[in-house]
Simulated assay, not measured.
Amino acid sequence: MTVQRADARRNYARILAVAEEEVAAHGVDASLEQIARTAGVGSATVRRHFPSRAALLNAVFSERVEALCARARELTEAADARAALLEWLGALTTYAASARGLADALVQDGRMDDPDHVNACSTKLGGAVEPLLERAARAGAVAPGVTVTDLVTLVTGIALATEHHTDPNAEAHRLLGLTVAGLSPRG
């Protein structure tokens, strides 16, 4: 295990803090050069710490994604499998609608079920929510064939569609509720 020098740790922390602000302001297309300038380091330093845009985005979203994964694990033993899954989808929707760039990050590298195009955020979320989805499916609370990819794609689509709405979080939750309820009244 290599121990980072103090200046390297400071550079990493500064780059990550600036990247979080830039991604929040400009989404996943935030300029790596602007991040380097604002952090007061060279582009090579950014690339040394984050060898790809995906690595930088995974680091930017890591803490929140871990919190979503922890919440999924907590909900796995909930008495009502449907309610647990919907609560987690609501938490994902809140985060995706409020963290500009997360939805893009989840879909930019391709589908979660394509092993050649998976990013770390998608992999972690998928692994965490799979037990919730399986329980809901066994309870008959989810239509047969619904996958984790379907759920994450649905939420990311809603987040992308509501990104420029005056209240993206409220609109995203309204659309998620509409999706869960379905379009047609039950007769």
Rank of each mutant, 00 (worst) to 15 (best):
L106D: 04
R5G: 13
R73P: 00
F61P: 01
G90A: 09
R48Y: 15
H164S: 15
D80E: 07
E63L: 05
V148W: 08
G40Y: 08
A54R: 13
A81S: 08
P115M: 11
A59C: 01
T179A: 15
D113F: 03
A6I: 12
L183V: 06
W88R: 01
E77L: 10
R138N: 12
A159L: 07
G127L: 13
V180M: 03
E66A: 15
E130Y: 12
A159R: 00
G140W: 03
A30V: 00
V28T: 15
L183R: 14
R100T: 06
D80Y: 01
T93N: 08
L89W: 05
N11F: 01
D109E: 14
Y95T: 15
G187M: 01
R10D: 14
A72T: 00
H117G: 12
A141H: 09
G101W: 04
R47G: 05
T162H: 06
C69R: 04
A84N: 04
A161G: 15
D114P: 03
L89C: 04
E171H: 10
R82D: 14
R5F: 07
A83K: 05
A6S: 13
G127V: 08
E130R: 14
A55D: 15
M1R: 12
A17R: 07
W88G: 07
D113R: 09
R64H: 08
S43A: 13
Q108G: 14
E130F: 14
R14A: 09
S31C: 10
G182W: 04
D104A: 11
V152S: 05
P131Q: 08
L89E: 08
A70E: 15
G187R: 13
V146R: 02
N169V: 15
D109G: 14
L32H: 01
A128K: 09
V129P: 00
L160E: 11
R47F: 12
R174A: 13
S62C: 06
D113K: 00
V107F: 01
M112H: 10
S43I: 15
A96T: 06
L86F: 04
A161S: 15
Y95H: 14
D116S: 14
D29S: 11
R73K: 10
R135A: 15
A36W: 12
A96Q: 06
G101R: 05
E66K: 12
A54N: 03
A99D: 07
A161I: 10
E171F: 10
V146H: 03
A6M: 07
A6K: 13
L106N: 03
V118Y: 06
S52G: 03
V28G: 12
T166H: 14
A170H: 09
E77F: 04
A128S: 08
L85G: 03
T179H: 06
Q4G: 01
P51M: 02
E77A: 14
C69H: 00
L57V: 06
G101L: 09
L86P: 00
A55W: 12
A67Y: 03
